[in-house]
Design a protein around this nucleic acid. Structure first.
Lengths: 353, 353
DNA sequence: CAATTTTTGGCAACCGGTTGACAAACGCCC
DNA sequence: GGGCGTTTGTCAACCGGTTGCCAAAAATTG
């Protein structure tokens, strides 16, 4: 490049390769071997293969390691073995609180099982997601995809390389964690029917969302069973803002109860309807999905079909870790139960007046 | 351990070392070298040192790499160089939405600058935090500590090893990103004074929280300036639940306006006071801190002193990355501005009646 | 006490890149 | 065409662990 040639002017603070920043380089197994008076390979075994060396040398080595306060170099270990004790989690959108709980669940399980979590997001784009996934694949032992936007086939290709677990979607041949919408939705619809509602609107989520399709199916089925009329409305995006925007369609639909693809839509919708002077739930009932953080901050607090998101995250992590350790079914689907959380935003319809 | 001795029963699916799961092992620079008819080191240079090889061989090598769809092995690269293109972020509590925005900001910046973010949490414990930090240090190029709970000295020790940036706290000699509470708080207190309040309570956060101390100082100073009385109340924990618990102390204090250490406390407090029949803001004004996600879901929506958390996250990441690339001041403090977000939970005190 | 089995530790190759030193090849000028 | 400086590519050592194989040492047995 355009660098001056004077060699001694090159390194200002001179971060000599190995020395992290200041003083001494980190201790290696060779240092330990020297201190303990044994061979490096013996140190390696003492530190990773329990029972392979005699108790005496074990102690010798451990003492030396402690003295030098040795820490394994994860890269040196990963290079020959391929194991990193790390797994990746890719979410569609970090902005979306749905994923907060999933992240938390996965993170917790990771820590407990002595793994490290690496996080990435796909910005709701299948292409970005695939890129992120590919990049991650190189550094992790396995991957969790939460609400993936990429094709089934892409997922399967990834899964051939290393264990992959999918959340909120079912992909043939890949282990999945999916909330079973049935119970929660039928509870919700039955509750609405019992409160005198006859026409229910469903505000759908993104087109590519597998989950949105399942929820609409569930709503249709439950409405049919309870002999309610169900109409589907589209949203522009699955956010609070999207909820506000769909408000006029909701009013135009003539439905007296609304289920939305997720809580954010429900919250935005409720805000907009209230701003227009409607009273919730007297004039319209609103039911969300997921029971995200903050769903009970609203007035009235939001009735919602709870998906145990934290459980999804930790369940997926457990599935993955089991897979990594050889136990666990490589094509198991973990179904978690949904349930209605009845709060104030749904209830009996008051006669107009 | 208690493992059976039969050696051939050990590997059920027998994952042959290198082969990820199924077929062929990944391509290496040696493979590329063979295909392109050059030396491996030439391949290495072509792929990482732009301009070091001739355009002709460059192309030759790139084609071969594309054909074999080569991906560098990050471990092999990290081993000699020590660089990983990864940095860590440790937050006190993933449950706490304050950190959501910080995570998001950091993550975004990381992606833009082609870094990977590794996440960990400390469960609000200084000891856990230090352990997590130590563990991470080995695998990352740098570290961001958000609202750290460990000692200043521990932080400085870490910072000697690799670049560290701290959010929400000031540590001498370590680059920090801190919201400057002054502007936001004085706006808030002035607004309260203008609305006829004379006695203000501050609900404090965790003892070890540097930020809580700064906020209390800020409130005291601003109250003095506006000639309001300020009292300090303690909370058990900085959560919605903690907010509920502190409600009786708040009533007992006789204050007509409350500032809380964070929004969660404010939300919990408001819920509890409303449940007890008090009207917000007619009987009591409530002001939170941070403007977290969901702060505007409440009724009335929460007035709060906004800290630009996303900006903190991205700012810290930028600081760190600059440090890693040699630019950037190793002891700079980035101050971000706070501001009052006036919503419905604060206002004029109505005469009792 | 010798013979045999089991432990235990050492040797050396390997994982897949990076990099300093050096030599061959090249372009340029007189 | 010889002398000189610059590219460009090669060699070989190295990063720090892991692991198969073997021999020495220790424990067990007849």
């Amino acid at each position: 490049m355009t660098e001056p040639k004077t060699p001694d002017a090159a390194a200002p603070t001179g971060p000599a390769k190995k020395h992290p920043r200041d003083g001494k380089p980190h201790a290696t197994i060779y240092d330990i071997a020297r201190v303990a008076g044994v061979n490096p390979s013996t140190v390696s075994r003492a530190l990773s293969k329990p029972g392979r060396v005699s108790a005496k040398t074990q102690k010798l080595i451990e003492d030396a390691a402690a003295e030098l306060n040795y820490q394994v170099n994860p890269f040196a270990r990963a290079l020959p073995t391929g194991r990193t004790n790390t797994f990746g989690l890719i979410v569609a959108d970090i902005t979306n609180p749905t994923f907060f709980d999933i992240i938390r669940g996965a993170q917790t399980t990771a820590t407990v099982r002595d793994y490290t979590l690496v996080l990435a997001e796909s910005a709701e784009s299948g292409a970005t997601e695939l890129t992120a996934a590919r990049r991650m694949m190189a550094t992790v032992d396995g991957l969790i995809l939460a609400s993936p936007r990429m094709d089934d086939d892409d997922i399967r290709v990834l899964a051939r390389d290393k264990p992959v677990v999918v959340i909120n979607r079912e992909v043939d041949g890949v282990p999945c964690v999916v909330p079973d919408v049935h119970k929660g939705i039928s509870e919700a619809v039955r509750s609405l029917a019992a409160n005198g509602h006859t026409k229910v609107a469903f505000v759908a989520g993104p087109q590519q969302s597998w989950m949105s399709a399942r929820r609409w199916e569930g709503v249709q089925a439950a409405c049919e069973w309870s002999r309610l009329e169900a109409v589907r409305l589209e949203s522009t995006k699955p956010t609070v803002d999207g909820g506000r925007q769909v408000a006029r369609d909701v009013r135009a639909s003539g439905a007296t109860a609304v289920l939305t693809y997720n809580d954010l839509l429900a919250i935005g919708l409720m805000q907009e309807l209230q701003a227009a002077g409607m009273v919730v739930p007297d004039q319209i009932s609103i039911v969300g999905f997921d029971d995200i953080f903050g769903a009970d901050f609203t007035t009235p607090p939001l009735t919602t079909v709870r998906s145990p998101l934290g459980e999804c995250g930790s369940g997926a992590a457990t599935l993955l870790l089991d897979l990594l350790h050889g136990t666990g079914d490589p094509a198991a689907t973990l179904r978690v139960e949904t349930e209605l959380v009845l709060r104030g935003s749904s209830g009996r319809l008051l006669p107009a007046g």
